[in-house]
């Protein structure tokens, strides 16, 4: 009899970072260390995280494969499972199965300038490729990170951004939606697509990697169009409800593509061909 694909590996929470009031980053270590060395993933892939008694939830694996030995995820408390997860603390055990899905075509980005645009928790999906690029800093050109949030308090990776900025040739732009700023805010104020336009990035030799809520994505694509980016230069990762992660439960498809298999990473060029099922 074949292995039960639903049996998760058990992992212990070894570290927890409070990113915002409802976003947390967890670092998880496998209870069986051999698994850690057998598990290979690539930036952009995701896993099914189990909180026993609450259920399973899909999160992007937030750490780059270049930082192996553990798994990180950044999650926002939304519903049943994520609330269950938030109630756990360091030392407790959760489950992980994966990695699932396709990944960012990082190989194709070598020598290019990279522009990461993340809105809210969408930043979590960009974390792994960004970390990868930083770990292989000399293989890529300029790196710009545009991290947007509704309000200052909702900004994720606040501490890490300082670290990113210290690397050479990396620029970090922070922005909050109008009205979300605080008196001592020294970042940008404006919706992400607007701030993006203001940055006037040159399309030449640049890859834009973006993730955020569906509305943001829509306006981002309009802004990209305006700045004459080609659809092959833009890449995003989608989010659809999913349960099994292995192409059987039947709900995550966008048109004929199953997000858990042929996704979640798509180029803008591919998205144009797909029905709006996301």
């Amino acid at each position: 009899m074949s292995e039960n694909p639903y049996r998760p590996h058990l992992m212990r929470i070894v570290d927890a970072i409070e990113e915002t009031g409802d976003v947390r980053t967890l670092r998880l270590k496998f209870l069986e260390p051999e698994i850690a060395s057998q598990l290979h993933w690539q930036a952009g892939q995701f896993g099914q995280f189990s909180i026993f008694g609450s259920g399973e939830s899909v999160f992007t694996i937030a750490n780059a494969p270049s930082r192996g030995g553990y798994i990180e995820c950044t999650f926002r408390q939304m519903g049943k499972v994520t609330s269950g997860l938030r109630n756990l603390s360091v030392g407790q055990v959760v489950g992980f199965r994966g990695p699932y899905g396709n990944h960012f075509p990082i190989e194709e980005w070598r020598g290019r300038d990279l522009l990461f645009v993340g809105g809210g928790i969408g930043m979590a999906a960009l974390h792994a490729p960004l970390q990868f690029a930083l770990d292989h800093r000399d293989e890529f050109g300029e790196i710009v990170v545009l991290n947007g949030a509704r309000a200052v308090a909702d900004m994720v990776y606040k501490e890490e951004m300082k670290e990113w900025e210290r690397a050479t040739g990396v620029r970090v732009v922070r922005t909050v939606d109008p009205g979300g700023e605080t008196p001592d805010w020294n970042g940008e104020v404006g919706l992400i697509p607007d701030v993006f336009e203001r940055l006037r990035p040159e399309p030449d030799g640049r890859i834009v990697i973006t993730c955020g809520p569906p509305v943001m994505l829509r306006f981002m694509l309009m802004a990209l169009e305006k700045l004459s980016f080609k659809s092959e230069q833009v890449i995003t990762t989608l989010e659809n409800k999913m349960k099994c992660g292995i192409g059987q439960c039947g709900r995550c498809n966008v048109g004929r593509y199953l997000l858990c298999r042929q996704g979640p990473v798509f180029t803008w060029a591919q998205l144009k061909e797909l029905p709006s099922d996301y």
């Binding site: 639903y6 189990s50 026993f52 008694g53 609450s54 259920g55 399973e56 659809n240 409800k241 349960k243 099994c244 059987q248 439960c249 039947g250 709900r251």
Partner: peptide
Amino acid sequence: CFDINDEGNSFCGTRCRSWDSCAFARFT
């Protein structure tokens, strides 16, 4: 198509697979 849910409490329980339908709003 199916759904997967934990049925039980925070001491013990089962992870269950149950039929689901694409006609339900909560499916997606």
